[in-house]
């Protein structure tokens, strides 16, 4: 059970949050220009790596804000948290 430092509310229990999968997958600005494969890549393909992973999290039972979180999936260490639109810190 993680302790997550919400950038808006501070440290809270994991049960207040929900995970939104891989971060930094931008919705294409011109979807109609994309081939089926390119669109499918955006729509379905997500990384599942062992190690440092960039994720989206939502403080769903708190301020309802989305933010980004850097997590090492091998030991669940959180290496950084930053707001949407911000550049990820160096890990």
């Amino acid at each position: 059970m993680f302790l997550i430092n919400c950038p808006y509310c501070g440290e809270r229990d994991q049960s207040e949050f929900s995970s939104g999968g891989e971060a930094h997958i931008e919705r294409p600005k011109q979807p109609t220009e994309l081939s089926d494969d390119e669109w499918a890549d955006f729509l379905f393909m997500r990384k599942n790596i062992k190690g440092i992973q960039f994720e989206r999290w939502n403080h769903s039972h708190g301020c309802r804000k989305w933010f980004n979180l850097i997590r090492d999936t091998s030991n669940d260490k959180i290496h950084g948290i930053y707001k949407m639109g911000e550049k990820p810190p160096k890990v």
């Binding site: 931008e26 919705r27 989206r56 939502n58 769903s60 309802r64 989305w66 949407m84 639109g85």
Partner: peptide, 13 residues
């Protein structure tokens, strides 16, 4: 509501 919030906050801020 949370889906709409998601788009507003992350795709179309």
């Amino acid at each position: 509501l949370s889906k709409l919030e998601d788009y507003l906050q992350t795709e179309w801020p």
